[in-house]
Amino acid sequence: MPEELVAVYADPDEALRAVLSLRDRGVSNAQVSSPAAFPVVHEVEHTGHSRALGWVALVGGLTGLACATALEVGTSKALGLIVGGKPIVAWTAFGVVMFELTMLFAGASNFLALAIFSAHSRRKVAKAVRDLVSSERIVVTVSLAGMDPKLRDAARGVLGGALAEVTP
């Protein structure tokens, strides 16, 4: 595990105060692991893929639409029969399946994106640290690698009382 400070808090508000204090002292690389989306998780800087999620869902939905269109038009043309008085390619009748597959693919791609992006995102935090999280433990981590000595001291000062020993 790279050199880092790991502090454990039982109270989400204490963790929030610590993160805000760190930020006030110029320490901006804190990371939080939490059992729930408490306000503290929104107070740390984040560079992730979350913005891409909407686009992934859109592309997934369009793929579903294309699949439904291909399936309905392709099979109807292959059959070549007029059924129920509707034209062979009956767009109004085909609209329902197109809608269903659009939504299905949009949902499924959104879920897959969540799984993949989350797996990528969590690699920034050591497994030993992630394993500390529980309903009574919110973990704040600060990486000291390459950090200015003054900032190191500031981080130690803020997290001091809550620092934990973590075995990699």
Binding site: S34, A36, H46, H49, S50, L53, G54
Partner: peptide, 12 residues
């Protein structure tokens, strides 16, 4: 595992 990055993605 509840890292802040995962929560952001989850909440989106």
């Amino acid at each position: 595992s509840g890292t802040d990055g995962e929560w952001r993605i989850f909440e989106k």
